[in-house]
Design a protein around this nucleic acid. Structure first.
Length: 272
DNA sequence: CGGGGTTCCTGGCCGC
DNA sequence: TGCGGCCAGGAACCCC
C-alpha cells in the first residue's frame, strides 16, 4: 500500500519550495539520464520566478535563455522533493537542483512513476492530463452546476471519472475513496442525482481542506520538502481501513475493485 | 469519441 | 530461513 502525493501533499510541498526557490538562480541542474527526468537538466542557469501547483502537478515557472518556460513535475507514486539532500549516494535520487543560495533540492523516486517536463510558459500540449484538467477543487472555479452536469450523465463509474482529473483536478485513490464515503456515494455508481452531486462536491472540498491542514497524508512514502510526515492518517475514514468498522454506522468496511483500483467503502453508507 | 484493459516500477509482505 | 509471487497505483498508451 503506497501513498501517492495528491493535492494536499503537493500543495504542502509547493508552499515549502516557494520560499526557497522563488527569485533564485539554478546554478546546477543534474538529472539522471532517462526520458522521465532528463529534461530537468535544461533549467540550469534559469531564474525561478514562481512555484505553482495545478492538480497534482508542481510547476516551476522560470526564465532561461530559451525564454519563459515551466518545469512541470509530477511525483507519481513515490516521488519526493526534499530541500537539502540525504548524505551519501542514493540510487533513487534522479534530479538535483543547486541554487545560487547554496541550497539544493533533490528528487527521490523509488518506483519511478514521476515525470519532469519542460514546456513553454503555460503551454501544456505535451502533458495531456494537465492540459485537460478540470477545475481546482479548492478554488471558486469548482462550480457545483458544472460538476452536477457531468455526474448526472451516465458513464464510467464515478470513481473512475474522478481519478481521470477531467471533472476536477488533484484527487487520487485516497481522497476519492474518502470523499465518496463522506458523501454516501458508492464508487461504482455510473450516474448520480443532484443531491448526491451536491454532497460529493462539498465532501471533496472538506476532505482536501482537512488533509491540507494536517500537512497531507503519510500512509507510507510521503514526506514533505522538509522530510516530515503529514498527520492526516488519523482523519481517514476508509482508505487503509478495510475490515475495520465504519466510523458512521459501525459496519465492517469492505474492499472492492473499481476501475481497476482497490477501493474501500461502507456497503451500508454507500448504496450501489 | 469514450470506456476498458495493460503497462511501467520496486519494496514490502504473504504463504509455503 | 528463503524465495516466488503478488500487490500498490497515476497516467500514458493501446484497442475496440
Amino acid at each position: 500500500m503506497g501513498s501517492m502525493p495528491e493535492l494536499p501533499e503537493v500543495e504542502t510541498i509547493r508552499g515549502q519550495l516557494a520560499t526557497t526557490l522563488e527569485g533564485r538562480w539554478v546554478r546546477c541542474a543534474w538529472a539522471r539520464s532517462g526520458p522521465r527526468w532528463d529534461e530537468a537538466a535544461s533549467v540550469e542557469g534559469a531564474l525561478v520566478t514562481g512555484v505553482r501547483r495545478r492538480g497534482k502537478f508542481l510547476i516551476l515557472a522560470h526564465d532561461s535563455e530559451a525564454g519563459e518556460r515551466d518545469l512541470v513535475v509530477h511525483l507519481g507514486m513515490t516521488g519526493q522533493l526534499c530541500l537539502g539532500g540525504r548524505p551519501g549516494p542514493d540510487p533513487h535520487v534522479h534530479v538535483v537542483l543547486r541554487l545560487d543560495s547554496g541550497e539544493h533540492v533533490s528528487y527521490r523516486d523509488v518506483r519511478k512513476f514521476g515525470r519532469w517536463r519542460v514546456t513553454p510558459r503555460g503551454d501544456y500540449a505535451r502533458i495531456q492530463s494537465l492540459a485537460r484538467m478540470g477545475p481546482e477543487p479548492l478554488s471558486t472555479s469548482f462550480c457545483l452546476d458544472a460538476f452536477t452536469a457531468e455526474l448526472t450523465k451516465e458513464g464510467a463509474p464515478v470513481k473512475a471519472r474522478l481519478l481521470l482529473q477531467r471533472i476536477v483536478g488533484g484527487l487520487g485513490n485516497i481522497y476519492v475513496d474518502e470523499a465518496l464515503h463522506a458523501a454516501g456515494v458508492h464508487p461504482a455508481r455510473r450516474f448520480l442525482d443532484a443531491d448526491e452531486c451536491a454532497r460529493l462536491h462539498r465532501s471533496i472540498q472538506e476532505v482536501l481542506e482537512t488533509s491540507l491542514a494536517a500537512g497531507g497524508t503519510t500512509f507510507r512514502d510521503y514526506l514533505n520538502a522538509n522530510g516530515s510526515r503529514g498527520t492526516n492518517v488519523s482523519n481517514l475514514r476508509v482508505y487503509g481501513r478495510a475490515g475495520q468498522e465504519c466510523t458512521v454506522c459501525g459496519s465492517v468496511l469492505s474492499r472492492l475493485l473499481v476501475a481497476g483500483r482497490s477501493s474501500v467503502l461502507c456497503e451500508r453508507c454507500q448504496v450501489p
